[in-house]
Design a protein around this nucleic acid. Structure first.
Length: 469
RNA sequence: GGCCCGUUCGUCUAUCGGUUAGGACGUCAGGUUUUCAACCUGAAAAGAGGGGUUCGACUCCCCUACGGGCUGCCA
């Protein structure tokens, strides 16, 4: 474990315009790992300054997503919109200090400027005529507050992932800090909030890399200390293109509904774009102690369900029966399934060792557990029905009397079934199929002996008799 | 269009000037087997292209290609 750094503060700052998608979840995870691994703080801020697109439903979905993923934040989530007065105050201070100015250009004028610039092949960065206007000549009209950004020189971003990134100041325009209706823009709000919240490390998507340069100008104007930046590459879809809803830009709720345990999601997401040597499957504790900014890759990663499945299977294999059952309940809850009753839960805990080998997701365990959860009459699917022909029914009828007096243990049952197969000049393998059909109603099940042992003599015989009819 | 970032097996990645370029997922072959899996063994599989720098480049520099981002009174 690195030395404790309680002074470290990270944050996740989603805008509530939709569900928590996989990219956002990973950004949150990185911030969480970084802070938690160092004894620092992990804060949550909702960037809801866009009143038209922000919704309470989205905020709720994001909080629920983080909650499911197990990413706990410190303190109450902060609403950026709720801090509008403070943002305006900073804008005023910059205005007074001459770091910002009132711009009376209307959106129409700006649009016309850009169109003309484009037509003439000039830079479309807007150059406000009000930048150096005499305040005495200001009209009595609504105005936006623009940052008076330096036009000479360059701004360099020292990024923990991307290295030193230099952007010439003439590539940056005077960004708007306060809209003409007096509300703050994101560009101003992030800086003010990050500063006020004491954020020391900003880990976010690299779609903000260029923005960081403009934001640094605000830090400079206010004389604030610039936090450490780490712009992480975005996640791409399987085709290498931008992630879209069609292939993986699903909300984390979808992964919950697909039955991936949150611990597995954390593990998989952590490995997507970050690595620690050859370590692939690890615990939260390990991830927290290992996670560092220099282990983050520079290239965009693609989401791979196959690997997620594998990681998920590994985690399931390491969970205790009790943990799995409680995750099963969560899965059932997420998918609208009927919760497991107390006896059912106990039964699954007892049977878990034969249920979990090979399972990659929670529903796969449920499917394997089906035989134990159902009651007669056993509903058989097509494949199961097919294995119950007249011959096999006949064999099953021979079996039941033998089972009635047998001692109910694996070795005895094995002897009985092997002997029975022998008398019919066949292998036990052939016999197993109709037995599966009888006991579980499916062609794919756990071992027939395991099922018989768990079901007990009476239920086993009853199901076989039912199938043999 | 301008600016910025990226590019190692199909995928996630290791490598931080000298390696038979390593691991994992997936794939294929074999083994095991009571079904599906799981599991075990093995194999195929990579430095985008072109120039430099250097005794020596995946690694440093430049160009090109491709991908992504920003360029909003969105975040």
């Amino acid at each position: 474990m690195p030395a404790p750094r309680p002074d470290i503060v990270t944050r996740f700052a989603p805008s509530p315009t939709g569900y928590l998608h996989i990219g956002g979840a990973r950004t949150a995870l990185f911030n969480w790992l970084y802070a938690r691994g160092r004894g620092g703080q992990f804060l949550l801020r909702i960037e809801d300054t866009d009143r038209a697109r922000s919704t309470p439903e989205a905020t709720h979905a994001i909080l629920a997503g983080l909650d499911w993923l197990g990413l706990d934040w410190d303190g109450a989530p902060i609403s950026q919109f709720g801090r509008a007065d403070r943002h305006a105050e900073v804008a005023r201070a910059m205005l007074e200090a001459g770091h910002a100015y009132k711009c009376f250009s209307t959106p129409e004028e700006i649009a016309a400027f850009r169109e003309a610039a484009k037509a003439e092949g000039r830079s479309t960065l807007f150059q406000s005529p009000w930048r150096d206007a005499d305040p005495a000549t200001h009209p009595d009209a609504p105005f936006a507050v623009r940052l008076k950004a330096p036009r000479e020189g360059a701004t360099v971003i020292r990024d923990e992932v991307q290295g030193e990134v230099t952007i010439r100041n003439d590539q940056l325009d005077d960004m708007i800090c306060l809209r003409s209706d007096g509300t703050p823009t994101y560009m101003l709000a992030v800086v003010v909030d990050d500063h006020d919240m004491g954020v020391t490390h900003i880990i976010r998507g690299d779609d903000h890399l260029n923005n960081a340069a403009r934001q640094m100008q605000v830090y400079a104007a206010m004389g604030w200390e610039v936090p450490v930046f780490a712009h992480i590459p975005l996640i791409h879809g399987p085709d290498g293109k931008k992630l879209s809803k069609r292939h993986g830009a699903l909300g984390v709720e979808e992964y919950r509904a697909m039955g991936y345990p949150p611990a597995a999601m954390r593990n998989y997401l952590a490995r997507l774009g970050w690595s620690h040597g050859d370590d692939e499957v690890f615990s939260d504790e390990q991830a927290m102690s290992w996670f560092d900014l220099d282990g983050i890759g520079k290239g965009a990663a693609r989401f791979d369900f196959k690997k997620l499945d594998h990681i998920s299977g590994q985690h399931i294999a390491r969970m205790t029966p009790g943990e799995i059952v409680s995750q099963l309940q969560d899965y059932l809850d997420a998918t609208g399934g009927k919760p497991l009753s107390a006896p059912e839960a106990r039964l699954l805990v007892q049977a878990m060792e034969l249920l979990k080998p090979g399972a990659k997701t929670l529903p796969q365990i449920l499917e394997k557990a089906r035989f134990a959860l159902i009651s007669r009459p056993v509903d058989r699917d097509e494949k199961a029905e097919k294995s119950l022909d007249d011959v096999s029914r006949g064999i099953l009828r021979e079996l039941t009397p033998q089972l009635r007096n047998a001692s109910w243990e694996r070795t005895t049952l094995e002897e009985i079934l092997n002997a029975l197969a022998g008398t019919h000049d066949t292998s036990f393998g052939k016999l197993a199929a109709p037995l599966r059909a009888a006991l579980a109603g499916r062609a794919v099940t756990p071992s027939v002996f395991d099922m018989m042992l768990l079901l007990g003599r009476d239920e086993t015989i009853a199901r076989i008799e039912e199938a043999a009819r």
